[in-house]
Design a protein around this nucleic acid. Structure first.
Length: 453
RNA sequence: GGCGAGUUGGCGGAGUGGUGACGCAGCGGAUUGCAAAUCCGUGUACAGGAGUUCGAUUCUCCUACUCGCCUCCA
């Protein structure tokens, strides 16, 4: 049995992963707020936890793992988008979810077992809030329901903060109806223009954090194994989730292991709209950058470190994958390399595993292919981009060969060189040897540029 | 201010208490009409200081620098 070790944010240590029930390993990952295309940063947790999902399935069995990733489809950003575009909220969220699926599929990420939408679990949230009020952990004030942070002794443990420290920093909204500045909203009132649901506290909508607590409880139970997301969620989102869930279900421990991926950068800088280096996954795909290339670049950095997206990495990954696909063409996948599995099992060392792939690439092609596929590379589904188009270059090859033969006699290679140059500019790889002339479509191949040759 | 991450050769990026991966680029060679591709070969890298140790890049502490989160954004 492979031993999986994971760096648990809760204990700040790398620990041996021991599932609560090896027959039913449960993982919850915070998903997107669906109001627009996913940007590249959104893809990082998707890919990181995709690897973890694959690893867990490998170790415990494909049927023994439950992976839940939510869609936040009630949020003020969505409301704003709906108002701006004069569209219904459901219309926007439906479309965005479809985009999300398309884009993440293109990166080779497996779909989770459950992708609950917040709006479909409002009842569960209301029940949880009622329970929290009944237990003294929450209170209603002016149509709002607030979580009483002081009622949860361990508040701040995950992110290493104390309530008092945070109040000192005081970057919190100090609403007059809060008992304590750190108290956060479980339910808030909606007006006629804002989506809402009837509740014991009037017409309103849930706060952001409660959905993950409610849905993880409903789908995974009061205790489950792994909770993941970006490290920007550690506070306040995950801290608040813990407070809600542990107070509502003191019989459970909520998540045993917390995993947080570091943030993404672009050419060494934070990706942000204000810096103008903000782009979506779809932007990259539309530029012709294959999802598989994005995947290789993204997994080339350990999830615990900042990941820097650069064009140089993109281009190297492109070349690497072309080479690799050439190596496994027509090869049947064999057994997955155990050393690669062990490397991934060591806190998802994807960069180390990719390094291992380079080594495997020099050995048995069947093992190499299986190992690459295990990580979601070199699959048929992602392979279209690198397919050698069914263009027939043999006529051109013959022509070039004829020119070359003639040139060998005359010692005048100018015609040969001119044609070679034109071919290379069209993205054709030109190989000439004693054996003859071979032409292959390569990166940047453009059939249109072959016209007239 | 609070919390956290990082600093390995030209670049990217693994790993280890005791001959320092791998990829790309570079350089030399084979090959080629020239290239490309391929093959062979090649590189006195572990931020700085102190400590532990027979021995540290690897463990501990300190310093410097970089970066991220805490704010719409994962």
């Amino acid at each position: 049995m492979t031993t999986i070790k994971l760096h648990n944010s809760k204990t700040r240590k790398k620990e041996v992963f021991e599932p609560i029930d090896p027959q039913n390993v449960r993982m919850y990952v915070c998903g997107p707020t669906v109001y627009d295309r996913a940007h590249l940063g959104n893809a990082r947790p998707v890919l990181v936890f995709d690897i973890l999902y694959r690893l867990l399935r490998h170790v415990y069995g494909a049927d023994a793992v439950t992976y839940v990733r939510n869609f936040t489809d009630v949020d003020d950003k969505i409301n704003a988008r709906a108002a701006r575009d004069n569209r219904s909220i459901r219309d926007i969220t439906d479309e965005t979810i479809e985009w999300y699926h398309d884009d993440m599929d293109a990166l080779g990420a497996l779909r989770p077992n459950h992708e609950p939408r917040a709006t479909e679990w409002i009842g569960a949230m209301v029940s949880m809030i009622e329970d929290l009020i009944a237990k003294g952990h929450a209170y209603e004030k002016e149509g709002h329901v607030l979580f009483r942070v002081r009622s949860y002794e361990n508040y701040g443990a995950l992110s290493g903060r104390s309530v008092d420290d945070m109040i000192a920093g005081a970057r919190v909204e100090v609403a007059p109806f809060k008992e304590d500045p750190m108290d956060f909203v479980l339910w808030k009132p909606s007006d006629a223009q804002t989506p809402g649901w009837d509740s014991p506290w009037g017409y309103g909508r849930p706060g952001w954090h409660i959905e993950c607590s409610a849905m993880s409880y409903e789908l995974l139970g009061a205790s489950f194994d792994i909770h993941g997301g970006g490290n920007d969620l550690q506070f306040p989102h995950h801290e608040n989730e813990i407070a809600q869930s542990c107070c509502a279900h003191p019989e459970g421990g909520f998540a045993n292991v917390w995993l947080h991926n570091e943030m993404l950068q672009v050419e060494g800088k934070k990706m942000s709209k204000s810096l103008g280096n903000f782009f979506t996954v779809r932007d990259l795909l539309d530029q012709g950058i294959p999802g598989e290339v994005v995947r290789l670049v993204m997994l080339g950095t350990h999830y615990g470190k900042p990941m820097d997206w650069t064009d140089k990495k993109r281009s190297e990954a492109d070349q690497t994958l072309r080479n690799w696909r050439g190596l496994v063409a027509g090869v049947e996948a064999g057994a997955v390399d155990q050393e690669l599995i062990d490397t991934l099992a060591d806190d998802l060392n994807t960069a180390g595993a990719i390094a291992r792939l380079y080594v495997l690439a020099k050995g048995d092609a069947a093992i190499f292919k299986a190992s690459a596929e295990f990580m979601g590379f070199l699959t048929d589904a992602l392979g279209d981009w690198a397919k050698v188009d069914d263009v027939d270059l043999s006529a051109l090859a013959d022509k070039l060969a004829a020119l070359r033969t003639a040139a060998m006699e005359t010692k005048d290679f100018s015609a040969v060189d001119a044609m070679k140059k034109a071919l290379m500019e069209a993205g054709v790889e030109v190989r000439m040897s004693k054996a003859g002339v071979e032409l292959l479509p390569a990166a940047g191949f453009d059939a249109a540029k072959l016209e007239g040759l």
